[in-house]
Design a protein around this nucleic acid. Structure first.
Lengths: 211, 211
DNA sequence: GACACGTCATGAGTATGCTCATATATTCCA
DNA sequence: TGGAATATATGAGCATACTCATGACGTGTC
């Protein structure tokens, strides 16, 4: 009986545990060796499982990285939503807070982001096998940005421009990441300045374009 | 003597010829099968050489694709320079012509661009081995864009904003490519409309920001 | 408790980008 | 012209992301 009770859900428990161990091992290796230099064999070894098992949980090595970015995006959206000071702030401040939150989260992993990010987050091409999950993440992110824009600029005041805005912002986000990755100024202050300046301009264009 | 004369420069001749054959074979395969599905073995076979030889000419498979983009960028810059009608046109028209020229060149190879482009052109990360050549291409391209901006907006009238402009344009270019790749409208007219609209705004921001 | 069923870990195997020691072709020089 | 020196082609071999047939193990039923 006791044995039976203990064994209930053992499989599910184990699955969760293994998944957790893979992610933990992978992130640690990505951070210390970079993405490319981390082999799936090493991930498996560090997680204490067979190499094949990794692929029972993640379709590809990049998929593990994608899981990381899902957490990153979720965390950033929550940070903006849960900050009451931002509730009535202008659009550019909200977006600035969003991006800042993302970059802070990414900072400790800078080393592997350059290699993995763009591959993992780019809009799906018919060639790539990772399209669905990445597309979904992108969709969720863009939906959030759209909400933020609508909060600041009521629908009836929007121009045709606002239709494009989330797409443009997605590209801008990629650009900001690239900028950040190559920013060697102290504390990445150049990036901060760049974000500040460009978001101000962007938001003002959106506002002025209303008709 | 005759033999000797014939053999002079034979090596150099052969080198050029083989290089040409590799590029030709690779492009044809990229176009028909896509980038990922094209193996280096197949490229070598189609070019009539051993697999190892490919790597005597190009450091990596992606490097072959990069060569293609070099041609693409060179061709587009020349197209803008050699068009007398553009000599005195406003900035946005020059940039529009530049991008249009690039997209036209890329059109027949759309299938493999999604897979290869971003990898090949992104700014170097310390991890990537392709940094130097890609960086150089990017540099040349940005220098050209800077020239175009200076032609339209004299140095003394520029704001701090114009300092960022080429970097921003580079990101914008990547974005435009992504947009184009996923544009299923007839004749890619959505992309054309997008370029037109966004460049107009961009140029006007640059002009207004002068101080 | 034992048996049947389904799920999941396993690791040898596969495909492929790339390397490297060797063979071959070309050039140079006497 | 012949032979040394150099450049280049070659393909077997390596590393590694990913697959798949197999067996071990958890789960539900009697």
């Amino acid at each position: 009986m006791a044995t039976k009770r203990r064994s209930i859900g053992r499989r599910a428990q184990n699955k969760q545990e293994i998944r957790r161990r893979i992610v933990k091992a992978a992130l640690s290796l990505f951070q210390s060796k970079g993405f490319d230099a981390t082999t799936t064999k090493a991930i498996a070894r560090k997680a204490g499982i067979a190499e094949g098992t990794v692929f029972n949980y993640f379709k590809t090595k990049e998929d593990i990285a994608l899981h990381f970015f899902e957490q990153e995006v979720d965390q950033a959206m929550a940070a903006v939503r849960n900050n009451p000071r931002l509730r009535k702030a202008p659009l550019e401040e909200k977006l600035f807070a969003l991006l800042n939150s993302q970059l802070e989260y990414l900072a400790p992993y800078e080393r592997f982001i350059g290699a993995a990010l763009i591959h993992a987050l780019k809009p799906a091409s018919p060639l790539g096998p990772f399209s669905h999950r990445a597309q979904e993440l992108r969709h969720r992110y863009l939906g959030f940005v759209e909400e933020l824009i609508e909060e600041s600029i009521p629908k009836r005041k929007q121009s045709q421009l606002t239709f494009f805005a989330p797409e443009v912002f997605w590209i801008y986000y990629l650009g900001a990441l690239l900028y950040w990755l190559h920013d060697s100024s102290e504390g990445k202050q150049n990036t901060t300045a760049f974000l500040d300046r460009s978001l101000t301009i962007g938001a003002s264009v959106l506002r002025q374009a209303r008709r």
